[in-house]
Amino acid sequence: MPVDEPHRVVCHLDRLLEERGMTLAALAEAVGVTVVNLSVLKNDRAKAIRFSTLTAICDVLGCQPGDVLSLDPGES
């Protein structure tokens, strides 16, 4: 049974890119996905992420998956 939206996963690409002085376009080129898709991820509009994409992002940014994504505690 699929889980209904909305989710509470928050993406921290904005902060990671700023800390490294990197642009979204440069990351997209290094990772091998389109800027549009990375923008969707950065703005929390993505519904899912491939492990391969996450691995490539972590490799390029030198971080762990938990640095890229975290769970908003929300009201619970």
Binding site: A46, A48, R50
Partner: peptide, 11 residues
């Protein structure tokens, strides 16, 4: 249709 919905928003 369900599969398409699953893929939509996949990065």
């Amino acid at each position: 249709g369900r599969l398409r919905d699953d893929v939509e928003g996949l990065v």
